[in-house]
Design a protein around this nucleic acid. Structure first.
Lengths: 134, 134
DNA sequence: ATCTTTTAATTGTAAATGCAATTAAAAGAT
DNA sequence: ATCTTTTAATTGCATTTACAATTAAAAGAT
């Protein structure tokens, strides 16, 4: 059964390569697009939380966010209560691009699942979710 | 249904992080362990073929193989027929470590699938395979 | 109230990464 | 037989990455 993890890995890498190629032109390659998506969906995460959500090393995430701030997609605000923390928000530029980013994700997903019936898709989703319960 | 690709991505990244942490001590981090596994399973691939098989940029793959040759895990042989190509083989050191690498993969896979019955595991495998048919 | 431990962000640095360009051999066309 | 196109390997270079260490604030202990 170990081949399951290889298949899953292969699928992920393929999508990742495609997505980065797609978004490089907007300066959102190197998985930067992921951050913009997540921040739009959950504004106000602090840096570490965001890093965990995209499952990337915190120092890398920190530098990527810094770049995205410089490029005008994201902004940081100091937390009032805890002054160690900085919370991340999407700028209007960051918000405007979200539909496009998400649309691509939806389209990739559809392409990926195109060989499955909708019942099978539902089944797959259930299985993946069940797998994840820790 | 787009959330399926996020779940798949999350699983992959988690496994990747764990595997690299596990194999860094043998100098097989940065996905280098993947190359050793693949070459053991299919000796004599040429460089580009190996790069495709691990789905990594060819130039990166080239450099990683070079390092693995320097570390004594792999070796390169010129192709007789086509002198542009170099074929990749595992050295005895590379062969000796294969069981350990593969065992870890099997173990990770088992952990990942531990919440599923064997019937569900089979089902998942079928679905993933069906998905991949292009 | 001070000391210790934990947690978040940040920086230093060396190594890894990947796009673009180059070299070299083979295959195909004229 | 020479010219063009394709394919594999390789290098140049700027960027990205991540481990280790540092700084700074908060939380917990005495």
């Amino acid at each position: 059964m170990f081949d399951i993890i290889r298949e899953i890995g292969a699928i992920t890498r393929e999508i990742q390569i495609k997505s980065n190629a797609e978004f490089r032109k907007q300066d959102l390659g190197n998985n930067a697009f992921l951050y913009v998506i997540r921040v739009n969906e959950k504004p106000g995460m602090f840096l570490g939380e965001l890093a965990d959500s995209v499952q990337i090393d915190r120092t890398t995430a920190f530098r990527t966010v810094k770049k995205l701030v410089a490029k005008g997609y994201l902004e940081l605000k100091d937390d009032e209560a805890d002054r160690r923390m900085k919370k991340v928000y999407a700028t209007s530029k960051g918000q405007e691009i979200y539909p496009e980013l998400h649309a691509f994700e939806v389209q990739q997903s559809a392409a990926l699942l195109s060989n499955l019936t909708s019942a099978e898709q539902e089944q797959l989703k259930q299985l993946l979710q069940k797998m994840q319960t820790k």
